[in-house]
Amino acid sequence: MTKKTTGRLKESAIRAFFFACGVLAVIALLGIFATLISTSFPAFKDIKLSEFLLSKNWDPTSPEMEEYGILSMIMSSFIVTLGALLIAVPIGVGVAAYLSDVAHWRVREIVKPVVEILAGIPSVVVGFLGIVLFAPLISKIFNIGHGLTALNGSILLAIMSLPTIISISEDSLTAVPPAYGEASLALGASRWQTLFRVKLPAALSGIIAACMLGMGRAIGETMTVLMATGNARTFPQLPQALLRSVRTMTANIAIELGEVPYYTAHYYALFAIGLVLFVITFVVNLVADVVLHKYQEREL
């Protein structure tokens, strides 16, 4: 065999390998989706879809009347996630701006890897922190019976999504061409004005992507919220919701799936919750993608 043909063979082999990897990933994804649909579908023989999505009462083991409404859980997931974003986005973007713009490069060189390592802390450890550290603090500060509340979950999820938000936002801020900053400074703008009016807008697509990824992590996180939010099956009324115990969709699945009798309406309903979660995450990612493309078009 000549050198040239071996080269070509090698190349097509490599190409086939990567193609196979891609196909495998798609198949896995479709498989998950199909399983989720087929396992959750039987639930709707016994449960009306409208009741499932719009009722606030979830009581599948009631001796008198079983109830399968997940609105409380959707709302709880929403509140905990929103709270996490409200905490994590300003801090995360602020730290990213500090690292890319203000910090000495040696500080950046040390802080960035440390932040990225934080992403690897097991969620069970974060949940533990919530129980022993933040919950007592919250109960003391707000003078409530116990601190296992939505706020507690939000704080922990914020901590968990900060590494992603900081790291990716910092990357996209660093990727802003220095020429933009120079142009701004040369026009008599201060460093603050340059940061807020030129660098942050230019890095916006990356920052939004960072926040969306952080949000994705927060919505789907299970162990931490299960440990830290009290798991009360009540509908979170909005003004005080952050200081009440809540049960998110993920926590509910994790709590009940271990004890549910197989192939009952309850069993299928838990998968249906999973499907709802999947759809929500999918929509969030889709919206993020659309937003990103819009901005990228405008930038080019």
Binding site: A179, Y180, A183, S184, L185, L187, P201, A202
Partner: peptide, 16 residues
Amino acid sequence: LRRRVGMVFQKPNPFP
């Protein structure tokens, strides 16, 4: 100072 002494750079650098 930079307002009084303006600058145009080597490579055109408009903002996005």
